[in-house]
Simulated assay, not measured.
Amino acid sequence: MDAESKQKHVHEVFESIAPKYDMMNDIISFRRHKAWRRFTMRKMEVQPGQTSLDLCCGTCDWTIALARASGKGKTVGLDFSRNMLDVGQAKVNKLGLGGQISLIQGNAMDLPFEDNSFDYVTIGFGLRNIPDIVKTLKEMKRVVKPGGKIFCLEMSKPTWQPFKAIFYFYFEKLLPLLGKWFAKRQDQYRWLPESLKTFPDLQELAELFRTVGMRNVKAYPLSGGVGALHIGTKGNEGA
C-alpha cells in the first residue's frame, strides 16, 4: 500500500470506528492501555503551566490527562479524523476544559505550529498509522521547545517465546473477531495487526528517534513487549 492509499484507508477506518473506539480499546487491550498511559504520565512529570501537543489525539483521553496535569497550561490535540475529534470534544466539554484544550483537525506530517512551541509533544497509538514515520518525528522535534521532550506510546512486538506466539495468534486471529462481535467492524479491526507488521520494533524506533536528532533517547517495553514507550529530548541548540 503506497503512502496516499494508506492515509486514505486509515482515515476511513478511524472515521467508522470512532463511536466505539474507547470501548474497543478497553476490550482488546484488557484495559492495559490505561496502565501504559499512567506509566507514561509518571515519566513525563508535567509541571503546572507547561504546554503540550497531543498528536493523533483520537477521543482525547491523553489530551485530557495532559491538561489536568498542567493545571492551566495550554493543551492542543490534533487528529485527522473529524469523527474522533467530535467524540473527544464532547468529553472536553463535559469536563469543562474547553478553555484550556483546543482540538484541531490536521496532518501529523505537516504540523500547523511555529518552531519551539510546546514543552511536550506526544503521540499515542498513532505513529504506526502514519505513512512517513521519520517525517512525523521531525515535525514533533521541530515544534517542541529546546530542552522539551517527545513521547511516543505505541503497540510493539514481543520477542520472547512462547508469549510471542500467543500474542500474534490473539492479535491476528482473535482481535478481528472481537471487532466483528462488539463493534460490527471486522474488516476495520484487521487493520490493527496489519499496521504492526512493517512498524519498527523497540530498538529500531529508538534508533529513528536518534536519527532525527533527539537526545537521551529511552525505550521502555510494556506488558512483555506488547506496547512500548519511547522518549526523546530536544537539544538546547533548537531545531
Rank of each mutant, 00 (worst) to 15 (best):
M155L: 08
K149P: 03
S195R: 09
E207H: 10
F171K: 14
D187S: 12
L196N: 15
F169R: 08
L196T: 15
F209W: 05
G147K: 01
K149M: 00
F151R: 04
R190W: 01
L178T: 12
P193G: 03
D187A: 11
Y170S: 11
Y189G: 04
L177K: 15
W181Q: 15
R210N: 03
Y170Q: 15
A206R: 11
T159I: 07
E154C: 05
A206G: 14
F169Y: 09
P200Q: 11
L192V: 10
L178Y: 13
I166A: 11
K180Y: 10
Q186V: 12
E204G: 08
E204L: 02
I166D: 08
L174Y: 14
Q186H: 13
K197W: 02
E204Q: 11
L205T: 05
Q186E: 15
L178F: 12
F182Y: 14
M155P: 03
F163Y: 12
W191G: 04
P162M: 09
D187N: 12
E204M: 07
I166F: 14
C152W: 08
L153R: 00
C152D: 07
Y189F: 06
L202P: 05
Y168K: 14
T159H: 06
E204T: 01
Q186W: 10
W160T: 12
A183G: 14
G148S: 00
D201S: 00
A206C: 10
E204I: 03
F163W: 12
Y170I: 13
Q186K: 15
L175I: 10
S195V: 11
W160V: 13
L208F: 06
L174Q: 14
K149N: 00
E194A: 05
P162Q: 08
S156P: 14
A183I: 13
T159D: 10
D187R: 13
E207K: 09
L174N: 13
L177P: 12
M155G: 04
R210K: 05
F171N: 15
L175K: 02
D201W: 01
Q203I: 00
L177S: 12
L196W: 13
R190I: 01
G147A: 01
L196V: 15
F167V: 04
W181P: 08
M155I: 11
T159W: 01
T159R: 11
R185K: 08
L178R: 11
L174A: 14
E172M: 04
Q161L: 06
L153Q: 07
Q188P: 02
C152M: 08
R210V: 01
P200D: 09
D187H: 11
E154T: 03
L153Y: 01
Y170P: 06
F182I: 12
K157Q: 05
Q188L: 06
K157P: 06
M155E: 02
L192C: 04
Q161F: 00
A206T: 11
F167M: 05
E207S: 06
Y168M: 13
F151I: 04
Q161E: 02
Q188W: 03
Y189C: 07
L208I: 05
E154R: 01
C152R: 01
R190Y: 02
P162G: 07
T198A: 04
G147T: 00
K180P: 06
L175S: 07
L178K: 10
F163I: 09
K180R: 14
D187P: 07
D201P: 05
T159F: 01
K157I: 08
Y170T: 15
P162K: 11
W181D: 13
R185T: 09
K157G: 03
E154Y: 04
E154Q: 02
F182V: 13
R190M: 02
Q161T: 04
